[in-house]
Design a protein around this nucleic acid. Structure first.
Lengths: 172, 172
DNA sequence: CAATCCGATTGCATTTTGCAATCAGTTGCA
DNA sequence: TGCAACTGATTGCAAAATGCAATCGGATTG
């Protein structure tokens, strides 16, 4: 792990972690897209990351303590990547970033649904989501009562509804 | 302004704006450091930005609508850079980013004071700060009652107190 | 009228990125 | 058994971004 820092400023240090075009995209796909495998991240992201960059960033994220890697018991070659608590606490930042982008940048309708829902849910929804992520990635016990719909499912359902709504309109 | 986007995802689009090592540093120095001139930004930042990169980013930030440039009436050669509303609404993101860095990264004591104060003040303090920035940069009327200490002054005072506290300790 | 300050610009070496092809091992299926 | 498909990567190479130092012409200051 690189210990040469430009300054000890919290914002600068955060930027030394995220100040590139791919790191947060990977974390977004893991957090909101539920991706855990190399190929899922490689083929699943809309932006089309290159495999060498993905490999480099995954390695870097592990060195930084944001991800861990484990063998997938179902497949001797598969690796499963997990978020650490350090990464899970990025959820509020992701939510803010999405909300800001939704207001100021040319976002596509369908893709902004998730950000909108996350923004409207506010900190309580973010907490629920982080709880779910801790359950999925860290094996922590859930605080949410059984039967409660998962936040990721809610976001995904809203996205798919928007897509089919758009398809209906396109079909006339 | 570049209109080729990797995707219409709000987080991706935000990343296309901030996904480099310098853009947010410049905005940080303008927002929290109160810098408005090229040389202030060039010599003032702890991280030591190069003049060509600074020029490039300032241009880009203007094209993106985050900054405006105006002549300084006191000096025919001086340019004054101002934050737009688009940039001012980054304050909550900066606060979150600082708070996250303070928890997870090796921040220096003095420099993290500001982030701590901003975190403790929460959304109400951020709103006051944004109001002040709108006053300074957009000429908007202030909502804060006269006599109220400015947020930037508070942050700066806390920082300087931390520095002198440290100097005292060092002196024995 | 000389030194200094102003917002940049230039040239150049180094580093990072983007892209495509490829790798060796594993698995599923016929 | 054989072979195609899939696994997490690695390699080579061109293009772009970055870092660094020197420099620019004009404006201001002493």
């Amino acid at each position: 792990m690189n210990t040469e820092h430009r300054s000890g400023c919290p914002i600068n240090l955060s930027l030394e972690v995220f100040g590139d075009r791919w790191t947060l995209i990977i974390l977004r796909d893991m957090i909101f897209g539920g991706r855990r495998h190399f190929r899922e991240l490689l083929n699943g992201s809309l932006e089309g990351i290159a495999s060498n960059i993905l490999a480099d960033r995954l390695k870097r994220l592990m060195e930084l303590g944001l991800l861990t890697k484990a063998d997938d018991p179902s497949h001797k070659q598969k690796a499963i990547y997990s978020l650490t608590e350090m990464a899970i606490t990025l959820v509020p930042i992701m939510a803010h970033l999405g909300a800001w982008g939704r207001v100021w940048l040319p976002v596509s309708e369908e893709l902004s649904i998730r950000a909108e829902l996350l923004e409207k849910g506010g900190p309580p929804l973010w907490e629920q989501f982080m709880d779910e992520l801790r359950h999925e990635h860290l094996g922590a016990p859930t605080k949410t009562p059984p039967g409660t719909p998962g936040v990721r499912q809610q976001l995904q359902a809203a996205y798919e509804a928007a897509v089919s709504r758009k398809a209906e309109i396109a079909a006339g």
